[in-house]
Amino acid sequence: MTTETTPSEASTRPAVLVLADGNTYRGLAFGAEGNAFGEAVFTTAMTGYQETMTDPSYHKQMVVMTAPQIGNTGWNDEDNESREDKIWIAGLIIRDLSHTVSNWRARRSLEEEMISQGLVGIKHVDTRAIVRHLRNYGSIKAGVFTGEDALLDTEELVRRVEQQEDMEGANLSADVSLDTPQILEPTGEVKATVVAYDMGIKSNTPRNLLARGMRTVLVPANYPFEKAMEFNPDGVFISNGPGDPATADEMVGIVQQFLDKDVPIFGICFGNQILGRAFGMNTYKLKFGHRGVNIPVKNHVQGHIEITAQNHGFALEGEAGQEFDTAYGPALVTHTCLNDGVVEGVALKSGRAFSVQYHPEAAAGPNDANPLFDQFAELVAEDIAAKSTAGSSSNEQN
Rank of each mutant, 00 (worst) to 15 (best):
G169K: 00
L134N: 10
I384C: 03
V380D: 02
A142I: 09
A90M: 10
I384D: 00
A363P: 01
I384F: 08
L178N: 09
V64E: 01
A170W: 11
N339H: 11
G391A: 14
N23I: 06
G188M: 08
V194K: 01
V16C: 07
A90K: 07
L338F: 08
R95V: 12
A170C: 13
V252R: 03
E378F: 14
A29W: 00
G169W: 08
E51S: 10
K349T: 12
A385D: 14
V144E: 02
D77S: 13
E226N: 09
P360G: 14
V293D: 11
S355V: 14
R128D: 15
T336I: 04
G121E: 04
D96S: 12
G243K: 00
A170L: 12
N240M: 04
T326A: 09
V255A: 13
R212N: 06
F270A: 06
G71E: 03
I305A: 07
V161M: 00
R160F: 09
A20V: 10
P245A: 00
E84G: 13
D126K: 13
T127D: 09
A40D: 05
L275W: 04
A309D: 01
E189F: 04
Y358T: 08
A20S: 11
I274M: 06
V252P: 05
E185S: 05
P245C: 03
F30E: 04
T193D: 08
Y49G: 01
Q50C: 01
V16Q: 08
N398I: 11
D234M: 07
D175R: 15
D198W: 06
N299R: 07
P366I: 05
E306A: 13
A353K: 03
R352N: 14
F279A: 12
S394Q: 15
L97W: 10
E4M: 11
I183A: 05
T43N: 11
I87H: 00
E226V: 07
G241I: 09
T127I: 13
P206N: 11
F266A: 00
